[in-house]
């Protein structure tokens, strides 16, 4: 990447505690992770391990109890358009058309109507949704809604795109299509992506590195470099290299799931 590249996430010694029903819950402890610009990093772990909490801290939705989160050297203090979030589902504005949803960020920046329509169309064509500009989200399938969600974030040209199990609510076939679509879009825009998932295949298929998290309080247990050649075809998941990585991660995730379950017992 060039020296002027943006999208460097620096998470240093992050600790996050919640108070729930009067009790303090430690969601994340001493979590440290750096990304290089243009990289896809997957956060993988059992449910409840705090991976979404880490993403929310980068987004600015939750404040750290300890440590720092910075993007390109700027400490994260509040949510902002430089760190767009793609949620699992139901996060499009139901009262706005596809075009209205994708134009939203530009409208917030005061871009004029004609210019924002033109830019929004560029990103809609990138995700293959030309022809659906005037549909409402409720009229789209789950996969199409997530494509709108991706276009809506990318139109802002964010430093990083944060994705919180974005394909978790889709059926297996659609999920695979969306993973391929995400990779082809990423080849165009080269935005840094932080991708939260509990699906090992998905993490390995998409990411340059997979951060395997421990059970709560979440820490990084293993940071796996995925050196599978790009562009990756869907068949990559049947290669021996993929299988080897999957076996290594599966063992770790299973151990953490067991720990998470036993840890929950009173």
């Amino acid at each position: 990447m060039s020296t002027g590249a943006t999208g460097r996430i620096e998470i240093t010694d992050l600790g996050i505690e919640f108070s729930r029903n009067g009790r303090t819950v430690e969601a994340v402890r001493a979590f440290t992770l750096m990304t290089t610009p243009g990289e896809i990093v997957a956060l993988l772990g059992p449910s409840g391990c705090g991976k979404t909490t880490v993403l929310n801290a980068v987004a600015g939705f939750v404040a750290p109890t300890a440590g720092q989160v910075a993007v390109d050297g700027e400490a994260v203090a509040a949510p902002g358009a430089d760190r767009g979030v793609v949620f699992q589902q139901h996060s499009l504005f139901p009262w706005k058309t596809v075009l209205g949803n994708v134009e939203f960020g530009l409208k917030m920046r005061g871009v004029g109507k004609a210019a924002r329509t033109a830019q929004a169309r560029t990103y809609l064509s990138l995700v293959g949704l030309i022809g659906f500009e005037h549909a409402y989200p409720g009229e789209l399938s789950g996969g199409m809604q997530q494509r709108v969600g991706i276009a809506r974030v990318l139109v802002n040209r964010p430093r990083v795109m944060l994705m919180d199990e974005p394909f978790g609510a889709l059926d297996a076939q659609t999920r695979l299509t969306m993973q391929e679509l995400l990779l082809s879009v990423w080849r165009e825009v080269r935005t840094t992506i932080l991708f939260v998932t509990h699906d090992i295949d998905e993490a390995l298929f998409l990411a340059d590195r997979v951060a395997v998290m421990t059970a709560r309080p979440g820490q990084i247990r293993d940071l796996v470099a995925v050196k599978l050649a790009r562009p990756r075809a869907a068949t990559v998941i049947a290669t021996p290299e993929f299988m080897a990585l999957k076996a290594r991660i599966l063992t770790q995730v299973r151990e953490e799931s067991v720990r998470a379950l036993s840890g929950r017992r009173p």
């Binding site: 358009a81 949620f87 504005f93 939203f104 917030m108």
Partner: peptide, 12 residues
């Protein structure tokens, strides 16, 4: 979540 989405798209 819609409010969060709006803030992460730059809405005040």
């Amino acid at each position: 979540q819609l409010v969060r989405a709006a803030t992460s798209l730059g809405a005040g």
